[in-house]
Simulated assay, not measured.
Amino acid sequence: MSAPATAHFGAGGDAPYDVALRNGGGVLRLVEVAAGGERRVEIGRFLAAADAADDSVISKIRGPVLDVGCGPGRILHAAIRSGQLSLGVDVSRTAVEHARERGLPALQLSVFDALPQEGAWETLLLLDGNIGIGGSPAVLLERCAEIITPLGSILAEVDPDPHVDRGFVATVVDDDGRSSSAFPWYDIGAAALRRRLHGSALDLVESWTVSGRAFVRLRRA
């Protein structure tokens, strides 16, 4: 499957995502496509250590593990510390460099690129909103189903509201107000995702919440 022909996370402009990662500031600005409402996510959260909610996901993984949209490597680090053979991929050069500086194995690739060992990954991670990559969970998950083993799992973070199903126009804005090019993003909850998966290559087989965050496990149908 080829990559969607759209801008990606934080690209363009004056590379504010790169600046935000280096300086620990900046925000991900999300404007809802249908309603025009706005919310913001602090970029600093992507630099934080894994917390109890993240650990609930790590406890369910088995290797080898592919962390899609690994960013600077906070979840990748936790997966490796748990003893699992793991690799991260991200489109951001700065994010990948940050991960590598920490000694973490990461490659500058999109999930829609040709990836190492496709079909051999036991667990694929889509955390920190990464189910929104490309602006279409259905397209993203169809691609992810090609990457895991026949008995593998996709562990994804979803919206805490199970019925949320909404697209966004997203930008990354650094502390000096410089903005990236706009790119598509998406939020979806567990119930809405289950409906969208009907008739697809994946089944939603488990869901749970910890500390106000929600997660699901998907397997091949």
Results as ranks from 00 to 15, higher is better:
Ala3Tyr: 08
Thr6Asp: 04
Thr6Cys: 15
Thr6Ser: 13
Ala7Arg: 15
His8Val: 12
Gly10Glu: 01
Gly10Asn: 10
Gly12Ser: 09
Gly13Lys: 11
Ala15Thr: 12
Pro16Asp: 06
Asp18Met: 01
Val19Ala: 13
Ala20Asp: 02
Arg22Asp: 04
Asn23Trp: 02
Asn23Thr: 15
Gly24Glu: 06
Gly24Arg: 07
Arg29Leu: 10
Ala35Thr: 15
Ala35Glu: 14
Glu38Met: 15
Glu38Phe: 12
Glu38Gln: 14
Val41Arg: 10
Val41Met: 03
Leu47Phe: 11
Ala49Arg: 11
Ala50Pro: 05
Asp51Ala: 02
Ala52Trp: 06
Ala52Val: 00
Ala53Arg: 08
Asp55Tyr: 00
Ser56Phe: 02
Lys60Glu: 13
Ile61Arg: 06
Ile61Cys: 06
Val65Asn: 03
Val68Lys: 09
Val68Thr: 13
Val68Glu: 08
Gly69Ile: 00
Gly71Leu: 09
Pro72Glu: 12
Pro72Cys: 11
Gly73Asn: 11
Arg74Val: 03
Ala79His: 08
Ala79Asp: 07
Ser82Gly: 13
Leu85Glu: 07
Gly88Arg: 10
Val91Arg: 08
Arg93Phe: 01
Arg100Val: 08
Arg102Asn: 04
Leu104Asn: 00
Pro105Cys: 06
Leu107His: 04
Leu107Trp: 02
Leu107Val: 11
Gln108His: 05
Gln108Tyr: 09
Ser110Pro: 10
Phe112Ile: 03
Gly119Thr: 15
Gly119Ile: 14
Ala120Glu: 12
Glu122Lys: 00
Glu122Asp: 05
Thr123Ser: 01
Leu125Asn: 10
Leu127Cys: 12
Leu127Asn: 05
Asp128Asn: 14
Asp128Ile: 10
Gly132Asp: 00
Gly134Tyr: 00
Gly135Trp: 01
Val139Tyr: 00
Val139Asn: 08
Arg143Phe: 01
Arg143Glu: 05
Arg143Val: 01
Ala145Ser: 15
Glu146Arg: 15
Ile148Gln: 11
Leu151Ala: 10
Gly152Ile: 01
Glu157Ser: 13
Pro162His: 12
His163Tyr: 02
Val164Met: 08
Val164Gln: 00
Asp165Val: 02
Ala170Met: 06
Val173Glu: 06
Asp174Gln: 03
Asp175Ser: 15
Asp175Glu: 15
Asp175Asn: 14
Ser179Asp: 03
Ser179Met: 01
Ser180Gln: 06
Ser181Val: 07
Phe183Glu: 08
Pro184Arg: 03
Pro184Thr: 10
Trp185Val: 09
Ile188His: 04
Gly189Met: 00
Ala190Glu: 09
Arg194Met: 07
Arg195Tyr: 09
Leu197Glu: 07
Gly199Thr: 13
Ser200Ala: 14
Val205Asn: 05
Ser207Leu: 03
Ser207Gly: 04
Trp208Asp: 14
Trp208Met: 12
Trp208Cys: 13
Val210Trp: 10
Val210Gln: 13
Ser211His: 12
Gly212Leu: 10
Ala214Ser: 13
Leu218Glu: 09
Arg220Val: 01
